[in-house]
């Protein structure tokens, strides 16, 4: 089968919202991965460091965990928050 993507590109345009979503996800992904380079961190720690709402960090962090960029490390001393680290 040849490359069919070129055929659909002639018929469809990518909505601006889709392009914006990709940019936003990629930006947050880079920020989260960068903060985890130094040491494992929890959602509130990451959110504070990159100045982003905690629920947005949770969503993106869990998505990165699902797709294998991030993994669970340990739980904090209060047994409240898991720490996450880069998956080697």
């Amino acid at each position: 089968m040849g490359k069919t993507i070129d055929i659909i590109k002639k018929k469809r345009e990518v909505p601006q919202e889709v392009k914006d979503n990709i940019k936003a996800f990629t930006k947050i992904k880079k920020q989260i991965l960068k903060t985890l380079e130094t040491e494992p961190k929890s959602v509130p720690q990451i959110a504070k460091e990159i100045d982003l709402a905690q629920d947005i960090v949770t969503y993106h962090l869990m998505t990165l965990q699902k797709f294998g960029s991030v993994e669970v490390d340990d739980i904090d001393d209060m047994d409240e928050y898991y720490l996450y680290k880069l998956k080697k």
């Binding site: 929890s42 959602v43 509130p44 959110a47 905690q54 629920d55 960090v57 949770t58 969503y59 962090l61 869990m62 965990q65 699902k66 669970v72 739980i75 047994d79 409240e80 928050y81 898991y82």
Partner: peptide, 14 residues
């Protein structure tokens, strides 16, 4: 499951 345990969607707290 979507998370690694049962967690709060807001801040990932158990």
């Amino acid at each position: 499951r979507p998370f690694n345990n049962v967690l709060r969607p807001k801040d990932g707290k158990m």
